[in-house]
């Protein structure tokens, strides 16, 4: 057993996992306010990356300006989605809203394909590709940066959900009708959660765009992000972070063992197995809230 290699796999697994968490935090934000898994989060992430590129390349802004500006644009888009599409569905069965987010994902993918085409573009953040050495262990710098962003967002949102606005969002997630009854604007709350999730999508889009290039494949992050969110419990940000780390490590280390046996491609299998087993064994995930039943 090569311990150095194994710890390298594990550490990079943790970092990759945190990048999944970065994506999954967006899913959790929307789930917390509207109890719907947002199937359009992949599309939003891709749009976030394209908007950054459009501002940086096509308009010619520096990246440090293009990224926050893109966050503002996406914040507005998130609110817009609630206003135009979701508001009409308030009070309808969850499955309708789920289908709407699926439609939205397809719409976003189609729109980006029409505007920016299918060729992959690079983000060029300026993070060096030379790996960092920790003893004998290789660590990718961009993964380290992304993991840092994920943790920073995690802390920021943990604090946010203790503020008055954050508490109102959690109240909305608990009970729409009761929220209306005390004058909480459910519509604005759901809009805010979409806006925040769209900002998270910019962060995820920039980091993942740097790693794998900006193209349609960015929207496929949804599958891993959803797995992480489900494992973490869908409405727990802490869960999303821890589940991301778990999935990253299991996937990285597991694939190293399994790939020689099955001849490659076992990563997807591991992700699928985690998703299916979570739903079967622990549907509320690691940290998800249960519906309270008093005896």
């Amino acid at each position: 057993m090569d311990w150095v290699f194994l710890s390298e796999l594990a550490i990079n697994g943790v970092l990759t996992g945190l990048l999944y968490s970065l994506f999954a935090i967006g899913l959790v934000l929307i789930y917390k306010a509207s109890s719907v898994p947002n199937l359009a989060q992949g599309g939003l992430t891709m749009v976030g990356a394209y908007v950054v590129l459009a501002l940086a390349r096509d308009v010619g802004l520096p990246l440090w300006l293009a990224i926050p500006l893109a966050a503002v644009v996406m914040f507005g888009l998130g609110f817009g989605i609630e206003r135009v599409a979701l508001r009409r569905l308030a009070g309808r069965p969850v499955v309708m809203i789920l289908m709407l987010t699926l439609g939205l994902d397809i719409f976003l993918r189609g729109t980006t394909l029409a505007i920016w085409g299918g060729t992959s573009r690079s983000m060029e953040l300026g993070v060096s590709y030379d790996p960092l050495f920790l003893g004998d262990i290789f660590i990718s710098r961009i993964h380290l940066v992304g993991a840092g962003v994920a943790l920073a967002l995690f802390v920021a949102f943990m604090l946010f959900f203790r503020t008055r606005t954050g508490i109102k969002l959690r109240a909305i997630a608990d009970d729409y009708m009761a929220s209306w009854s005390v004058g909480i604007s459910v519509e604005r709350g759901v809009g805010l959660s979409w806006a925040l999730a769209s900002v998270v999508a910019v962060a995820a889009g920039v980091i993942w765009g740097e790693i794998q290039g900006v193209d349609q494949a960015l929207s496929l992050l949804l599958l891993k992000g959803l797995t992480v969110a489900v494992l973490g419990g869908l409405d727990s940000i802490l869960g999303a972070v821890i589940a991301g780390i778990i999935l990253g490590v299991v996937e990285n280390v597991g694939a190293d063992f399994l790939d020689p046996l099955v001849g490659g491609g076992s990563r997807e299998l591991i992700v699928a197995a985690v998703l299916i087993l979570t739903v079967m064994i622990r549907p509320h995930g690691l940290f998800g809230r249960h519906d309270i039943e008093r005896v």
């Binding site: 508490i167 109240a171 997630a173 608990d174 009970d175 009708m177 009761a178 005390v182």
Partner: peptide
């Protein structure tokens, strides 16, 4: 219909 996953104190805050 209290907000079940919030504390009573947060329930009051939410209605502010």
């Amino acid at each position: 219909r209290v907000f079940e996953h919030l504390t009573p104190d947060e329930n009051l805050t939410a209605a502010a």
